[in-house]
Every structure is written in C-alpha cells, then in structure tokens.
Design a protein around this nucleic acid. Sequence first.
DNA 1: TATGAATGAGAGTTCATTCAT
DNA 2: CATGAATGAACTCTCATTCAT
Lengths: 255, 255, 255, 255
Amino acid sequence: MSEAILAVVCYYAYAMVKLWLLQTLWALTHSQFFQKGRDVSMRASKTRVIFEAAIDIFSERGFEKATMDDIAAKANVAKGTIYYHFKSKEELFVFLVEQGTEILREHVLAKLSDQMTPTDQIRTIIHEQLTFFTDYRDFCIIILREAWGEEQRQRQFRRMLVHYVRAIEEVVLAGIQTGEFVEVDTTTTAWSIFGGLSITALHHLFADPSVDLTSLQPHFEELLLRGLIRSVPNTHSSTAEDGNAPSPLTESGEI
Amino acid sequence: MSEAILAVVCYYAYAMVKLWLLQTLWALTHSQFFQKGRDVSMRASKTRVIFEAAIDIFSERGFEKATMDDIAAKANVAKGTIYYHFKSKEELFVFLVEQGTEILREHVLAKLSDQMTPTDQIRTIIHEQLTFFTDYRDFCIIILREAWGEEQRQRQFRRMLVHYVRAIEEVVLAGIQTGEFVEVDTTTTAWSIFGGLSITALHHLFADPSVDLTSLQPHFEELLLRGLIRSVPNTHSSTAEDGNAPSPLTESGEI
Amino acid sequence: MSEAILAVVCYYAYAMVKLWLLQTLWALTHSQFFQKGRDVSMRASKTRVIFEAAIDIFSERGFEKATMDDIAAKANVAKGTIYYHFKSKEELFVFLVEQGTEILREHVLAKLSDQMTPTDQIRTIIHEQLTFFTDYRDFCIIILREAWGEEQRQRQFRRMLVHYVRAIEEVVLAGIQTGEFVEVDTTTTAWSIFGGLSITALHHLFADPSVDLTSLQPHFEELLLRGLIRSVPNTHSSTAEDGNAPSPLTESGEI
Amino acid sequence: MSEAILAVVCYYAYAMVKLWLLQTLWALTHSQFFQKGRDVSMRASKTRVIFEAAIDIFSERGFEKATMDDIAAKANVAKGTIYYHFKSKEELFVFLVEQGTEILREHVLAKLSDQMTPTDQIRTIIHEQLTFFTDYRDFCIIILREAWGEEQRQRQFRRMLVHYVRAIEEVVLAGIQTGEFVEVDTTTTAWSIFGGLSITALHHLFADPSVDLTSLQPHFEELLLRGLIRSVPNTHSSTAEDGNAPSPLTESGEI
DNA sequence: TATGAATGAGAGTTCATTCAT
DNA sequence: CATGAATGAACTCTCATTCAT
C-alpha cells in the first residue's frame, strides 16, 4: 500500500510544483520583465485614466488647442505623471489614435462573417460604424479633424484609416465578384461610404447632439445600395418597407 | 537779373532731382523689389494678397499652427499690416472661410439651371464640387479640418456648410417630387453626397497629389445615382461605358 | 558774365546732387537693407542691454542655471524681446562668448608690436590679460567654467580659446627663434601661461574681490620668464627690480 | 504511519523546491543579470557604485545638466536608491568633490618626503598631478568647471582646492627659505603651477583624448623651474637636466 | 496706410524629490 | 534596504497682439 500512497503523494507534489512553475513562468513572461513597452491592456489605473481624459480633451479642443494641463486636470493627475507614461503630447495622441482606429476596425470586422452576403455585410458596416460613432462620438470628431496634414502623426493616422477603409473595399470587391454589386470603382466606393457616414454622423452630432445615429441606418442603406434613381420597373415605391429595408430586390420579378 | 532767376531755376531743378531721387530710393528700399518675386503690377490690394497667403498657410498648417508671421512672410507684408486690415487671426480666418464657402456655393449653383433634370443637377454638383476641390485643394482641407468644434468660428463655419448642403438637399427634394428619385431622406442624402465627395477627394489629394479628381466623376455618379446593387433587369453591364460613363439610364428606352 | 555764373550755379547744383547721392547711397549700403544679420556694433539699445545683462547673469549663475527670466529682468525687457533678438539661449551665449574672446584677443594683440622683444611681448600679454580680467571679471569666470564639454557651444568656445592661445604661442616661438627663449614646448608653454594667469586671477577674484590683479604682474613675470630656480651666479636678488623688472640678464657678466 | 511521515516529507520537499525556485526566479527578475554587464561579485557597496556612476555623469554633463536618472541608470540602481544613500543631488556632488580633492591631495603628498629638495618636490608635484589627471580625467574636468561661483557647494569646493594648493605653496616657501628658489610670491606661484597644469592638461584631454599627459612633464619642469629666458652665464646645469629635458644650456661651452 | 520692435501670457517639457510598497 | 510611480515647480520657447513711428 505504502508504495501506492507514496506514488500518489509524489505525483501530487510533482503536479503542484509543475502547476506553480507554470503559473510563475506565465506571470514572468507576461510581466513587464520581457516587455518594457506600454501596457496595452491598460490595467494600470493611471494610464487608463490619462487615456480617457485625453480622448475627451483632444476631441473637444483638437490636437493643437488641447493642453497637457487640460488633460492632466481632467485625469486628476499631475502634469508630470502624463510624461511619466507618455513621452510627449504627440506620442499620447498617436497612441490614442491607434487604439481608436483599431477598436473601430475590430468593432466592425467582428460582426462580419463569411456567411453573410456582401449586401448584408455592407449593412453591417453601416450599422456598426454608426454605433461606434454613437459610443465614441469624440473619437469620430478626432478622425475627421486630425488626419489631414503632412506631419508625422497625421501620416500615421491616415495609414490607420486606409487600413480600415481597405476592409470596406474588400467587401465591395467581393460583392462585385459574386455579381451582387455593380462593377463600381472599389476605392472610390469604400471612401465614399466611409466619408458619407462620417460627415453625416458628425453633422448630426453637432446639429443635434441627442440624435440617435442608428435611426439613419435605413437612409444610408437606401442610398448606398439602391442609389438615388428610381429603378424604372419598380412600380411600387421601395420606401414602403422603410424600417429596416431588407432585401430590396426580391420584387424584381415583376414586369 | 537773369542770373538770379537762373540760380533759382537751377536750385529748383536741383531740388526736384533730389526729391525724385529720394522718392525712388525710398521706394526701392521699402519695396519688395529685391525680395521674393512679386506681381509688380500690384493691382491686387494688400487685402487680397493677405487673403491668398492666408489660404495657403491655413490649409498647410491648420488654424492653430499657422502663425501670423508665416502669413505675413508669405504675403510679403509686415505683420502689423495684417492687423491693419483684419482685427485678429480669428477674423482673418472667418473672412477666409466665408469667402471660400461662398465661392464654392456660387461655383456650383452657377452651373445649375431649372432646365436640368434633378439627375443632371446631381451630376453637375458632383462635377463642380470636384473641380472646385481641384482648384482650391487647400480650402478643401480647411473645410474638413476646421468645421468641427464649439468655438465661435467653428459654429459660423458650419452655418456656411449647412447653407451649401441645403442647396444639394433642394435638388434631391426636387427629384423626389418629380418622381425621378426614390423617396430617400433628403438631409442624410445631401450630407452623404457632400461628405463622400469631400473625404474621397481629400484621401486622393493626400494619397496621390497629382491625381485628377474629375476622373472620379463616373464612379460617383454610378454609386450615388444607381446604388451598389445590380438591378436585376439590367441585363447588360453598365460598366461598359466606363470612361466618362454618362447617363447610365438612357438605354431604358421608355418614353 | 551770365555764362560764368550759370556754369558756377550748375556746377554747384551738380555737386550738391552728387554729394547728397553719395551720402544716401552710403547710408543705404550701411543700412540693414543689405545686411540683415546681427548689428555687431550693437548701437541698437535693446541688443546691447540684453548683451550686458546676459554677461552678468551667465557669469553669476553659469549657463545652465542662468534663466532667460533672470536675464530679461536684469535687462529690464520682456522675455520675448530677448527671443526677438536672439534665436535661443544657446545662441545668446555663443554670441556673448564670441564677442568676449574676440575682445580679449584684440585687447591683447593691439598692444603687441613687432618692435618689441619677445620678452616684452610676454610681459605685455601678462599685463593686458590681467587688465582684461579686471575689467571683464565676469567673462573670466565664463571662460573657465563653460569651455569644457562636448556640446556644440563648448566646442565652439574652445575653438575661440585655441585661437587666442595660438597668439601667445607665436610670441613664444619668436622668442625661441631669436634665441632669447629657451627651447620649450610652445603649446605647453602658451597654455600654461594662459591657464596660470586665468586660474590665479580667478582664485584672487573669488578670494578677495577687491584685489588689484595688475599688482600680481611682477610675480608672473618673475615666474614665467626666470623660473623658480635661482640662477647661481646671480648674487643679488632679482626681486630688487620689482616694479617693471626689465631685462634681468644684463648683469650676467659678474664673477 | 510511515505513509503520513512520507507525505509530510514529500510536502516538505515540495515546499523547499518551491521556495528555492521562488527565490531563484525572484533573484532573476530583480537582479541585473540580464542588464548591462556588472561586477557579479558585487563586493562594491551600492554607495560605491553610485559614487562611480556619479563621477562619470557629472564630468560628462556638468552638475546642472546631469540628472539623477542618468546616474541611477549608469549605476544600475533605482532612482530612489540614490536618495537612500545621499540626501540630495547637491550632497552627492559635494561628497564626490570632497573625496576627489582629498584623493588628489593624498596622491600627491604621499610622494613628497622631507628628504627631497624643494626642486625635486616640485617635480614630484608636477608628475603626480599629471598622473592623477590621467587616471581621473573626469574629475579634472569637474574641478575646473564647478569650483567658481557663490553657491554653497562651490565655496566648499574652493576650500578644498585652497587646501591642496596650500601644500604646493609650502614647498615653494621651503625652497625660498633654503635659498634654492628665487623669492617669488608663493601664492601666485602655487596657483600658477596648479592652474597651468590643470588648464594645459584639460586642453590636451579635449584636443586629443589619447594624449599621454606625463609626456608633458619635462616641458612643465623646464618652464616652471628655469623660466623662459635663456640664462646666459649659467655654467653648471641646475639639477642635471632631468627626464627628457633637452638641456638648452650645454652649448654654453664652459668647462 | 504700413511697419516691425516689443510684449507677456501660456505652451510643452524636464527633473529633483517623495513615499507607499 | 531598495524600488519606481507620482509629483509640481521651474524651465525654454512661441506667438497673437500692440503701438510709436
């Protein structure tokens, strides 16, 4: 018997050591020991606090007019603390913009699946971008304000935007290849979708801050998918099914 | 006696020559003759010169980063001169923006006539806005950069934009009333047209400064007028007439 | 007669015009029209005032510790005014150092003539450097404090010093060539003269600010020209002829 | 029963292994094992490590420009650690300067003995100061840079210097009293020796960092002991031309 | 009309020092 | 003993605006 018990105990000890070793090593590799870079998850309170204050201030005042004093005050930290976490105003801004566009991209891409038709994918893109702009209203302002110029941060910013718009472009291209979409110019189309959504959203956010952007969804779908011109054979107005305007093509059979 | 007169005459001649020389030399030293090449005819008033320099600088640097020194240097006038003509940097900027949006509006409206169908009017709007953005590339940047915010000049700026977009809106409304257009949301549609055109143009201007924006026209027409989805009865691809792709509807045949 | 008078008058007019033209052109070429660079003569009041305040503050606090606020306050101008005249703190300092070492060099060289024997030239150098350090006590501090390091301004500073010490070196070399001096190492000797004078002067200025540096002259002459070791045949102390200690060698004949 | 004991033993073994692993890993993550190479034996206390880093940084950057971060990084300790050992930057600097001048003083005095003639003592001083400056090049820079000013640490610094120079002064005085030296002014002479040596050494260290300062020794001896002027009647060479001393007198022909 | 030297409030950034762990 | 995140006073430099000429 004692051998069995011994075996069990020894195995137990071995298992404990192994478990503990694994945990320790995991902690080690995930600690700042091997990655002195920024803590992306931002569990660190101060970094997160500064990040959020920065979005507020930058979107409210713009990059140039926003001051580090403003951000520090908003984040309730000393000015020096910001510089402990970010090398400069520029770096803080770039970090913020990278995170933001990446969130937007993931926010949208997460909802796209290969099962969807390109039409439904475009619908999803419209919807998700609108909800993103609702949730991150401030970031939406930053996008349009700060991307245009020849400074380093602005070029970097545009690279992120191009990355996002390319995702839209691919959906459009897929639609063309399946024959579902007209053979439009994909780049122009993708930027028009992004630009139309953004500027319109921005206009509404400033004209009436309480507006619900997602209520604009059917209008965008109508415009982007079906175009302005009444398809002649359509005898009955397509605007009947306004609410969520699903497949506007099923009636194509008539005459 | 005549000698005395002669003396007077000679002295007078001397005085005139001196006076003339004085003036010439003064003009020489104070003119910008030796400085950066300048339109010698100078019909342009100082105000005009400052105005043009301001557009250059504001679009290149943005409102906050542009300095009055930059503008003065570009305009080849002293900094004080700007303040003689404009009360402040803000006033100069507002003046510039008002002029600009007004020029854009007139530029577009001048080409619209009641004789046109709404469809052709939309085509014209696309075309004219693209040529405007080609000619006033800098102003196009200013529009998207500086309109969003709660400062006085930014509200004022948006009022000008709304004024312009309303013109597009009216064309869309007219098209709906004549039954030529689908019953879309006019505001969303007008801002989408403006936004899609603007952002796309801006993207191209930064991605490839040498691009000819008007070459994008057919793509915009295709997208905005006909939409993305292939109208089923259309048996032949409309993309055949790619080059300038005019009226994609004429083949419908109906009276 | 009238022709004669006429000729006189005309000539008079011509002469006046020519004179006036010459004056004007002279003023023109010497005005800032052709030389936008710094007004070296510093007739401009503000530049001069700032220059002098800067010497005060830099010598009192050192380059790093001196603040532009200090200098502005000392000069009784606004901080911006300094930056209107000098691009940066560094530039102000370099300008000051260039002027200073140049003044020292000219101050000394002006008193050296080819008629002098090398011995007398060394005496003159000692004397003039001591009077310079008396008059520009602050600059003397700057020289020893700020020349040592690898920053741009420090390298530049050392270049100026080398330039000055080279002048001493040439005198030593001349003395060797005429056989008047022992064949010492010229570089070591020149730097020792400069360094010994400077450090000693500095010590005295700090130990007892009211000290008359020129009273140290005979001691330096004694040391540098005759050395420490008593030349054996010299039966009478050389310190007898203290005042200006002329040729201590003429008595060489005895015994 | 033995099973229970076995279990206890096993658990104990497990605990020991875990403890040991914990310690090892902790040491690993907190040691500087992976950071810049470091003396593993670590006999040197933290104080010593900081001291050496401080000399490096202070001499490289100067007191004002050196930062505690620089020093901490160079010493491979946390910034707080410096403040555990030294009350402030100023205190660290004063400590460093006191140690340095004391080392210089002892370095030189240790080689002086009462048996030597004053002449040989001067020779020794020259030699030892040159070797000190060779070994502690950085400290040599600090001496000349930071001693001049009215701040507390600068007065303190000068007291240390005066202490050292006084030792030279005593040698000179002894030489005068024995009749070996001319009756020079002892203070001026001592400071000139110190200043000439220091500035010349500094010049060479910056002009050509690879220079061997001790090779300058004969030149200093020549200059300081014998002076510039050729003593014509000196029949017997004093001190039998030492190290390399090119004996400028042998051509005198006598005896 | 036009000028440009002068201004000073305010910006971004640095860094010696502290203190909870 | 040792750490390093946090601090905030103080620095250099910018630039819209004014005003005597």
